[in-house]
Each structure stands twice: as structure tokens, then as C-alpha cells.
């Protein structure tokens, strides 16, 4: 992806990073403006802010229990962030999650968090003992099981998003090919036909992948620290 980036001060900054920065600035500005003053009786945008926070808190409480409610800000952050990164495809940009490095980075944070929580809650000894349960022969299998979590998390996100982008791109190519076949200079077919595919691959798939990623993170944190 590096070749798609921008040269700034002699450093090649990849597009997936630039888009992330754009999304970050967008989120930070939006949040700063919207939460400038909270009123006791909510009006307009404050209703949506409260709804989002409430839903995320409820989701974390329902999936992880009251004990792990402290994870709500992290889960909320990755939900908002991944959703924005996935939906950026609607602007004609390539979602950064189609860069495997980005997906892997997100999964690595979750991976570290999963194991840090497990060690913090159980102590290092008990945590390490967990690898040899139910009996020591399963040690290699347990290690693989743990290590494969970030890989599966990131590959799922990356694969789905990339597949969506490729399919939509192929549809555009095919439609412009069709337009050429019937000798129309304007990309007539490309105007309307891709809309349902955008809805499915960008909006639907983007939301679903965001949910799967955050749900699995929640469940892994809970089950690994409670095993």
C-alpha cells in the first residue's frame, strides 16, 4: 500500500495511515463539538450521544458483566473507530482495514488486552497454569489457541473488508466494460447498479465486521480471564 501514500518531509506515509488520521480528526472534532455542554434535559444531538454511550455500556454489561464495565470505553472506541474506517469506503476511499497491517494492529491491541486482563485477574502463576489444562499434553494446542486469536480476529476483518472492496471494484470494472460494449461514453450502468452492492459490502459488511470484532474481543477478554 505504500505506493499509494503521500511523501511528507521525505517520509512516505501510506494511505491507510492518512485515512486513519483523517478519521481521528473527524471523530475528535465531532466529539469535542457535541459534548461541549451537556444539558440535564437532552435535546437534539445530545440524545444521540447518550444513546450511543448507553448502548455501548449496555452491550459491554450484557456480554462481559458488571465486573468488566471498565472496558466499555475501549470497546466503544474500537467500535466507533472500526466502523468509521470501514464506512470510509462510501466516500470512494479504500477502507484502511483492507490493509492487513492495520487490521493486525487492532487485533494486537485486543490480544494484549485479553492476556493482560487474564494475568491481572488471575496472577501470573495461575495464568500460566491455564496453558496446561485440562492436562499438560494439551500445552502446545493451548498455546496455538491463544496465539491464533489475533490472527483470526485480524484476518476476519481484513479478509471481509478486502473481499468487499474487490467485489465492488470488479462490479465497477464490469459495468464500465458493459458501457463500452454498448458504445456509451458515460458510465451509465455504473451510476445506479452498484448502490445495492455498496449497501451490502460497505455498510452492512462494515457494521457486521465491526460488531464481530468488538464482540469477540469482549468474549475473549471475559473467557480468558475467567477460565
Amino acid at each position: 500500500m505504500a505506493e499509494n501514500g503521500l511523501m511528507i518531509l521525505g517520509i512516505n506515509i501510506p494511505l491507510s495511515i492518512l485515512i486513519q488520521w483523517g478519521v481521528m480528526v473527524f471523530i475528535i472534532v465531532l466529539v469535542t463539538v457535541l459534548t461541549k455542554r451537556l444539558e440535564t434535559i437532552p435535546h437534539g444531538s445530545q440524545i444521540w450521544i447518550e444513546l450511543i454511550v448507553e448502548k455501548i455500556n449496555d452491550l459491554v454489561r450484557a456480554n462481559m458483566g458488571e465486573k468488566f464495565i471498565g472496558f466499555a470505553p475501549y470497546i466503544g472506541t474500537i467500535m466507533i473507530y472500526i466502523l468509521m474506517l470501514n464506512l470510509i469506503g462510501l466516500l470512494g476511499l479504500r477502507p484502511p482495514t483492507t490493509d492487513y497491517s492495520v487490521a493486525l494492529a487492532l487485533a494486537l491491541i485486543s490480544f494484549v488486552l485479553i492476556h493482560a486482563t487474564a494475568i491481572k485477574n488471575n496472577g501470573l502463576r495461575h495464568y500460566l497454569k491455564g496453558y496446561s489444562e485440562p492436562f499438560p499434553l494439551l500445552l502446545p494446542l493451548n498455546i496455538i489457541e491463544r496465539v491464533v486469536v489475533p490472527v483470526s480476529l485480524s484476518l476476519r476483518l481484513f479478509g471481509n473488508m478486502l473481499a468487499g472492496v474487490i467485489i465492488v471494484e470488479l462490479i465497477y470494472k464490469g459495468l464500465s466494460y458493459l458501457s463500452n460494449m454498448v458504445h456509451i461514453k458515460l458510465p451509465l450502468f455504473a451510476a445506479l447498479i452498484p448502490i445495492p452492492f455498496h449497501i451490502y459490502f460497505d455498510i452492512f459488511d462494515g457494521i457486521i465486521q465491526m460488531f464481530i470484532f468488538s464482540m469477540l474481543t469482549m468474549i475473549f477478554i471475559k473467557t480468558t480471564s475467567e477460565h
Partner: peptide, 9 residues
């Protein structure tokens, strides 16, 4: 990219 993404997040 991984490092910057982690930092961003």
C-alpha cells in the same frame, strides 16, 4: 503501519 495504527487507536 502497525505501530502507527496502535498509537492512533
Amino acid at each position: 503501519v502497525i505501530v502507527v495504527t496502535i498509537m492512533n487507536t
